[in-house]
Design a protein around this nucleic acid. Structure first.
Lengths: 132, 132
DNA sequence: TATGGTATAGTAATCATTACTGTTATTTTT
DNA sequence: AAAAATAACAGTAATGATTACTATACCATA
């Protein structure tokens, strides 16, 4: 049975306290304020376990590093190519898509990931472009 | 102006000859049959340039390594968690989604990526599960 | 044929992530 | 509540994909 460690609790709490979809090392720095000698490996291991359990979401944007989200409700993301930020979208979730793909392919579909890429409103306003 | 090198031509040709969405090192091995001393760095650099130019597609599945696709038409992908294969889906493409997100957020949306995850029909039939 | 620009091969470096090892914490059993 | 069993930890080393670097080679044009 899975044991309840302070480290795992702190990771969940810190991740739940933000909406910024932090990376593993950002979470590491957040948790270190509470548990100064926590190991980066511990953060990675717990994030993986939690994501595998479905307790948190792992977001793969392709911009180098994985990001994590404590909000496990079905939703989609936007990733800004200029500042690198990832934000939630209030787009309706299409659960039926999974069923469509199953019928179309015979595969067993577990989930899908929909990510939009571009320049966020802030970056557009500031005239930034291209450079992360 | 961008120069047309044999290496780049070979990379495009090899990638166009398959529908398997190979990784950079798979493409490296394919091209090496024709240009034995081509460098892995050359493959990576050309794949990046081609993807940036929109001449090929870069597919980020989150299963460790990036994959590439010579088919640049708008389409979606399925990624099998058991065998790791990535396949094309004949799902209708929703270009209007980009516009919706723009109106909703004020961002400038360039593209979106929709990937389905699960166990492909072959793996379901063979009773494999979980292990890549 | 000299010049400037782009690409290349080969190698070294980077960086996110994972694996390993001996120790500590948590749970379960007595 | 002590002991036994097991999961998790800290710290560090290893892995592996990707990028950067450097000196050389190719190609076009003046």
């Amino acid at each position: 049975m899975r044991k309840f460690s302070q480290q795992r609790a702190a990771i969940i709490e810190e991740l739940s306290s933000v909406t910024s979809h932090p990376t593993a090392s950002e979470i590491y720095n957040m948790v270190r304020r509470r548990i100064p000698n926590i190991s980066l490996g511990t953060v990675y291991r717990n994030l993986s376990m939690l994501a595998d359990d479905g307790a948190i979401l792992r977001i793969t944007t392709g911009e180098g590093t994985e990001r994590f989200d404590a909000d496990t409700s079905d939703h989609y993301h936007f990733c800004c190519s200029s500042c690198g930020r990832v934000s939630d979208l209030a787009l309706p979730f299409c659960g039926e898509l999974n069923r469509s793909v199953e019928e179309m392919t015979g595969a067993h579909v577990q989930r899908h990931s929909l990510i939009f890429y571009g320049e966020c409103a802030d970056c557009v306003a500031l005239g930034r472009s291209g450079t992360a």
